Amino acid sequence: MNFIQRLGYYLIGLMIGAFAVWFILHQKETETFCYLPNCRVLKDLRSKPFQTSEEANFEMKNEKMSLDDVRLNLKHGDIDFSRSNLPYETGKIYIVEGRNPENQPIELELINYPDKVVLKNIKKI
């Protein structure tokens, strides 16, 4: 058996194995792996019950944002770790940089309590 035939058998086996792994992982309905700090914090913020403050409700009405837009920023936003993870009452403050529906940069100020997440403020950058 020459090299080309062995390479062909190897690639066919590799494709069958990759398809089997892909099929099994999609059947489990798992979320993507979150090993990086930004992904882990955003996943933690998304997993808890979500509340908004009066100031955040006012800003959401002015910016014409909905809670779906805020949740989208909690999925694709970036945590500013230099200004985050600060103690606040019994929780910690996190700053999430994202975009509003008009694609303008905004900042979400969130308080991460052990049992809930509160949106404290929304600011344009």
Rank of each mutant, 00 (worst) to 15 (best):
M1T: 07
F3C: 11
I4E: 13
I4P: 00
L7G: 02
L7R: 04
L7W: 05
G8Y: 12
Y9T: 09
Y9A: 08
Y10F: 15
Y10K: 03
I12T: 15
G17V: 06
G17H: 06
A18C: 11
A20I: 14
A20G: 13
V21R: 07
W22C: 15
F23Q: 15
I24A: 13
I24H: 02
H26G: 11
H26L: 08
H26I: 07
H26N: 15
H26A: 05
Q27A: 11
K28P: 00
E29S: 15
T30G: 09
T30I: 10
E31P: 03
E31N: 11
E31C: 06
T32V: 09
C34F: 07
C34S: 14
C34T: 13
L36S: 12
P37F: 07
N38Q: 05
C39V: 06
R40G: 10
V41S: 04
V41E: 10
V41Y: 01
L42F: 03
K43S: 14
D44S: 07
L45D: 05
L45Q: 01
R46H: 12
R46T: 09
K48G: 01
K48C: 03
F50H: 09
F50T: 08
Q51N: 12
T52R: 05
T52W: 00
S53H: 04
E55P: 03
E55D: 14
E55T: 13
A56Y: 00
F58L: 15
E59Q: 14
E59M: 10
M60E: 02
M60D: 04
E63K: 13
E63R: 13
K64V: 04
M65S: 08
L67G: 11
L67T: 12
D68P: 00
D68V: 04
D69C: 03
D69R: 00
V70R: 02
R71N: 14
R71V: 00
R71H: 13
R71I: 02
L72E: 14
L72H: 11
N73T: 01
N73K: 01
H76W: 13
H76F: 15
H76L: 15
D80H: 04
D80C: 06
D80S: 08
F81V: 09
F81E: 08
R83V: 15
S84D: 07
S84F: 08
N85G: 08
N85S: 11
L86C: 10
P87S: 13
T90Q: 10
G91R: 00
Y94T: 00
I95S: 00
V96L: 05
V96F: 02
E97T: 08
G98Q: 02
G98S: 06
R99P: 02
N100R: 06
P101M: 06
P101C: 07
E102N: 11
E102G: 02
N103Y: 08
N103D: 14
Q104H: 13
E107V: 07
E107F: 08
E107T: 09
L108W: 01
L108P: 01
I111C: 05
I111A: 05
I111P: 00
P114M: 09
P114T: 04
P114W: 03
D115F: 04
D115W: 00
V117A: 03
V117Q: 04
V118W: 01
V118C: 05
L119I: 07
L119W: 01
K120D: 15
K124A: 15
I125W: 10
I125G: 11
